[in-house]
């Protein structure tokens, strides 16, 4: 099953006014181009300030680029909609809604609840939260809350799922379990996924391709295809070798930046 759509980012530039000086601009993204095939899982990694999250917000349609275009399949992105789901590091569940109502909220927002109510149960089973349907978010552990956030984002069957360090706040064990869960959902649905992460292991473990970005100005340094067979072994020699290479690249990126300054 493939619900995903291709994503094309073409020569996107984005700058922001600096907080302390209205005249000066911070260049968040400089001439960023990236093509992602339908159903592909791509990770963005890089030091903070390299524009990963900005790129994700542009893809979600929550911000508009200063120049360049973003395309989902044949359609240009002009604003946010239910085709592109978004999950943050903080699950951002609506605290005033129960788990079930949080998951339903995507259907309610589109006025499709009557028609698709049965899918809510399906998604609660999918993320293993049937017994918590009437709990409020503050009763949930971090991992459970993030699962609810995933289910809420997936209920609209987005063509692209944007993940902004979704597992960053979880402890190491929960994080590894959740990586498997995300992969399971990805394989089951064929959703195109764009994952921002700080965790190199996570990027190698999950992605078809890793995009390394560098800051000031934020741009794509290089793209590394990961061809390891799935399910991947976190301690195989190939895995560790890749990890070493990427670390070196990121270190190099760091040196280049300090030389620039």
């Amino acid at each position: 099953m493939t619900e995903g759509a291709s994503l094309r980012i073409a020569s996107v530039n984005k700058d922001f006014a600096k907080a302390n000086d209205v005249e000066a601009r911070t260049i968040a993204l400089h001439d960023v181009s990236l093509s992602i095939a339908a159903g592909e899982l791509v990770s963005l990694i890089g030091p903070s300030g390299c524009g990963k999250s900005t790129l994700l917000r542009l893809t979600a349609g929550l911000d508009t680029p200063n120049s360049g275009e973003l395309w989902i399949g044949p359609e240009m992105i002009t604003g946010p909609n239910a085709e592109r789901g978004l999950v943050f590091q903080d699950p951002n569940l609506f605290p005033w809604l129960t788990v079930r109502r949080n998951i339903e909220s995507g259907l309610v927002a589109r006025g499709k609840l009557q028609e698709k109510r049965h899918e809510v149960d399906e998604f609660m089973r999918l993320v293993g939260l049937e017994t918590f349907e009437n709990a409020y978010p503050h009763h949930l552990s971090g991992g459970m809350a993030q699962r609810v956030a995933l289910a809420r984002a997936l209920i609209n069957h987005p063509k692209v799922l944007l993940l902004d360090e979704p597992l960053g706040a979880l402890d190491a064990f929960t994080r590894m379990r959740m990586q498997d869960e995300v992969l399971r959902l990805w394989q089951a649905r064929g959703t195109t996924m764009l994952l921002v992460t700080h965790d190199i292991d996570e990027a190698i473990y999950m992605s078809d391709r890793i995009v390394i970005m560098t800051p000031r100005p934020g741009r794509i340094e290089r793209t590394i295809p990961i061809t390891l067979e799935r399910p991947r072994q976190r301690n195989s020699p190939e895995f560790l070798q890749l990890r070493g290479e990427i670390l070196e690249m990121l270190h190099f990126a760091g040196e280049a930046r300090s030389a620039e300054v």
Partner: peptide, 8 residues
């Protein structure tokens, strides 16, 4: 932001 990406 989340609500917007849910189609609100």
């Amino acid at each position: 932001d989340v609500a917007r990406t849910l189609g609100a």
